Amino acid sequence: MDSNDLNIQEVISFGNDDNDLVMLKKSRYGIAVKESSKVAIDAADIHLDIGLGDFLIGL
């Protein structure tokens, strides 16, 4: 698969800081990790209140 075949609506992004704003907003689901900036939390669809590893193990 080449990056031109990637549909942004098929992407889940994880971020924690202001520089992740666009990624969190444009992906299908933007997830702000536990220790995130307010900007990242506001941009995300979900804000984790547990660590990312614990979240992924719980899936």
Rank of each mutant, 00 (worst) to 15 (best):
M1H: 12
M1F: 11
M1D: 10
S3F: 13
S3V: 13
N4R: 11
N4L: 10
D5Q: 15
D5E: 13
I8G: 06
I8C: 07
I8E: 13
I8H: 06
I8D: 07
Q9K: 14
Q9G: 12
E10R: 11
V11P: 01
S13Q: 04
F14A: 00
N16C: 05
N16R: 05
D17C: 08
D17F: 08
D18F: 07
D18I: 08
D18S: 12
N19L: 07
N19K: 09
D20K: 08
D20V: 03
D20F: 03
L21N: 11
L21C: 04
L21W: 07
V22E: 15
V22N: 13
V22G: 03
V22T: 14
K26A: 10
K26P: 00
R28P: 00
Y29M: 09
G30M: 02
G30R: 04
G30V: 01
I31E: 05
I31P: 00
I31W: 03
A32R: 01
V33G: 00
V33L: 01
V33R: 00
V33C: 01
K34L: 06
E35S: 12
E35F: 08
S36E: 04
S37A: 05
K38C: 10
K38I: 15
V39D: 12
V39I: 14
V39G: 04
A40Y: 02
A40W: 01
I41E: 14
I41H: 05
I41G: 03
D42E: 15
D42A: 15
I46G: 01
H47F: 05
H47Q: 09
L48S: 02
D49H: 14
D49S: 14
I50C: 13
G51A: 11
G53K: 12
G53H: 08
D54T: 07
L56F: 09
L56C: 09
L56H: 03
I57H: 10
I57S: 11
G58K: 14
G58S: 15
